[in-house]
Amino acid sequence: MFKRLNVEIVIGLLCIAPGILVLILTRSFPAGAASNMQLSGPAFFPNVLSIILIIMGLLQLGQGILRKTENAEGSVRNALKVLSRPASVTLIITILLIAFYIAAVERLGFFVTSYLFLFLLLWRLKVVWWKSLLTALIFLAVIYLIFAKVFMISLPAGILM
């Protein structure tokens, strides 16, 4: 089963699922409020789109099923293999760091969060630790100057502001 599962099939399924989800969600949308036509209702456009999406998903699915999966190229297993390389670990750490940034910035404030984020990222990207500390500081100063001072954007204040 897993062997037969190739990328095209996964794309197909990934199109059909949100398509169906949209169709379910739009059932609770009101009919066109201001006028009496179905066409002008808020559900019309999303419904059309999700139907196209489902059709395209089915086409992909068909292509995937018909295709011979013996050649490893395009198989899901092959794609998963890539993820276990050390470089991919760096990638995953980077993604987690961005997620951490989003979660923390309004609590810790711009300076602390950005500093931690940059330092940890640079460090992971194999910059010597004291250089990371310094580079992060310079970056922060530049960003602060441009965004907060020149463009007067109020960056999230936290425990340090």
């Binding site: 711009f110 950005s114 960003i143 965004f147 960056l155």
Partner: peptide, 16 residues
């Protein structure tokens, strides 16, 4: 590596 880290942080702050 410094450029990549910079792009990410600038993108974050810019989109904020």
């Amino acid at each position: 590596n410094v450029v990549y880290a910079g792009i990410i942080l600038f993108s974050i702050v810019g989109s904020y």
